[in-house]
Design a protein around this nucleic acid. Structure first.
Lengths: 360, 360
DNA sequence: GCGGATTAGTAAAACGATATACCTAGCGGG
DNA sequence: CCCGCTAGGTATATCGTTTTACTAATCCGC
């Protein structure tokens, strides 16, 4: 008796109401479970029936309710991202935004959403956010950035059984799927080489906070590259990822005695480098004549400033896209997702903020 | 028979499973419905019972499953935002990011999430995104930006019964709750006045696309302010909100004959203004000596460039927060949310990119 | 031509909450 | 003494899916 009334036809509800699986089943003249099997690709439905169901779904413009599916414990069609930074830092550094753009670019075509949680830096806030995300099944997985040394998030996420993809350099033992170009060291190494070739002998590095894995990683690369290209060990200043931090670091580096000033400085990101160029100019130090400056990230900002910024470029948009691809593979290992092209290692983009050393 | 087994106690499921309302009910020795009444503040539960339930919920660290509640048709504890821009534009202009930071600042403390959908500019993409959001009850409401002339989104959202808050200037008849400072015209007016006082006589305006309500609004203010301060009508160039657009506009404005060049230009946003300063410099025009430049938004970027940017500041963080406050009032008119302090009108922030006119 | 394995499909029980309808005890009024 | 009302609950249908268990029909080998 397939024509039996399902007891809940569309006309009994508001006209704007979304059609349900029952409506589709009624129209196709099959049971609700048959429809479910069809849309989930389960076996046990003949080709003609399958086609009838598909047609009916199409005609009613029906798609399964994400909420109901989520309640059942299956996919929520959303990916989470928790940023554990004060929100104003986020606003200043476009790094995140670019990454998010890349992520969205991959998410949008398949109708996935990005659930963003910006929590402050208070201890426990981040953990709470992940717990909620997991317990409430709001997302299928999370994308993390900026692995910290001894990062507790991975263990937490494992406990919560929340699939996670890390963007960037993982800590030695982080048990996590991570997305990054091979040859991460290429960028900083090329930068040091570039400076060495320009005749610079005193090169400094302004690093980010040293609890970040990538801060430490890049610093190490910096130090070994100096040695490799025959330069003396350079000064390293650890700073916050802020313009203020960069300004303070610059002032420290440019303080007398003049002959100990570095002639070139690498910064942990573009925002810092740009802020530093300004600070230098205010101190009467001209870039690149008196000081060469190199940033990291190759954000659009670098093209907008004067002099245009020489920087180490990584294709953050592509990194974001790769992260999503990795997430999808993690969520559904069977469905063969097209393997994305490998990420290109970071490379030096030479613009105007570096020039020949004018002092020994 | 309150001790009756609920048939689904915690120990029967995985140890990491979230407790359900049934677990709480069992622990408190009441029915499931009693717990529901307590957490939803309905009447019919005595004070001692209520306390027992609250204690039990606390002990089990239980909170209602958002998914289940959403399926029932109540709150989802998430706000949506659909950005109908190509994702790379989003990445370049931090305007959105700052706004989102403000929104999150208000959302995070009450455990609301922000569901971001960045869709391309193809026609219909945005509409589809809103439909999905509404049909699938993924969000309680949406925050919109950049009202367009004859904007179809508001009618759509009304049909979908999706509460909406608009950030910025609404079109005359847009039936929507909007958040903006009173006295929007103050910014551009102050900028023109500032330039007039510096002796500028030929002032140009580089506007954004004219389908945006705020583009047209600001342009009108610009034109009437010129008249008000005794200046001749100035050239207006309509451009995309991109660095490239700004560069092209600048080249057009600075083209010979030299004596017709404007001595000051206002831009629709900071990114454009900064790009323009660079373009001018490449043409041998020095800012502010030969050309004064004013931006709009007062993004952190303005402090980082040289010369530091004079701009029209609006507190986007606060605007974002106000939008969320308005949304909460819309969702729950009864619960008296503390009325936020009124938004301050945009005001001129004078830095280094404006100076006295050196040509008549 | 018959038993056992497939195939194609259905009915019904979850998932976790909320709301409606119902129940019971106690109390006051006529 | 009985009726009706209220306070304080409880049982159950519902939201829209997926999944498990089940049934009916067909096919295959012997």
């Amino acid at each position: 008796m397939t024509e039996r009334d399902t007891g809940r036809s569309a006309r009994q509800r508001g006209p704007a109401a979304k059609p349900t699986i029952a409506d589709v089943a009624a129209l196709a003249g099959v049971s609700v479970s048959a429809v479910s099997k069809v849309v989930n690709g389960r076996s046990g439905i003949s080709a003609p029936t399958r086609q009838r169901v598909l047609d009916a779904a199409d005609k009613l413009r029906w798609s399964p309710s994400v909420t109901a599916v989520a309640l059942r414990g299956a996919r929520t069609r959303a990916i989470g991202m928790v940023a554990g930074r004060a929100s104003d830092v986020l606003a200043t550094d476009p790094h995140f935004t670019v990454l998010i753009s890349g992520i969205e670019r991959e998410l949008a075509p398949v109708d996935y959403g990005l659930l963003l949680h910006i929590v402050g830096e208070e201890p426990g806030a981040e953990e709470r956010a992940y717990r909620r995300l997991a317990e409430e099944r709001r997302v299928d997985g999370v994308i993390l950035t900026e692995s910290r040394i001894g990062d507790p998030r991975f263990e937490l996420l494992r406990q919560l059984r929340l699939p996670a993809v890390l963007v960037g350099v993982p800590w030695q033992s982080d048990p996590v799927v991570s997305v990054q170009a091979t040859g991460q060291e290429a960028g900083v190494r090329a930068a040091v080489r570039h400076l060495a070739e320009l005749g610079h002998r005193r090169v400094a590095y302004v690093s980010g906070p040293e609890d970040r894995v990538h801060s430490v990683f890049r610093r190490r690369v910096f130090e070994s590259a100096l040695a490799e290209f025959g330069l003396r060990p350079g000064r390293v200043i650890v700073s916050e990822f802020t313009a203020q931090g960069a300004v303070a670091a610059t002032e420290e580096l440019l303080a007398p005695p003049t002959e100990e000033r570095p002639t070139a400085v690498l910064f942990a990101n573009d925002t810092m480098a740009v802020a530093a160029m300004n600070a230098a100019r205010r101190l009467g130090v001209e870039v690149p004549r008196d000081l060469s400056v190199i940033g990291y990230d190759d954000l659009p900002l670098g093209e907008l400033v004067y002099p245009r910024l020489t920087t180490i470029g990584q294709d953050l948009i592509r990194v974001g896209r790769a992260a999503v691809a990795a997430m999808f593979r993690l969520l559904d290992p069977d469905r063969a997702v097209a393997e994305p092209p490998p990420l290109r290692p970071p490379e030096l983009v030479v613009r105007e903020s570096t020039g020949p050393a004018t002092r020994p």
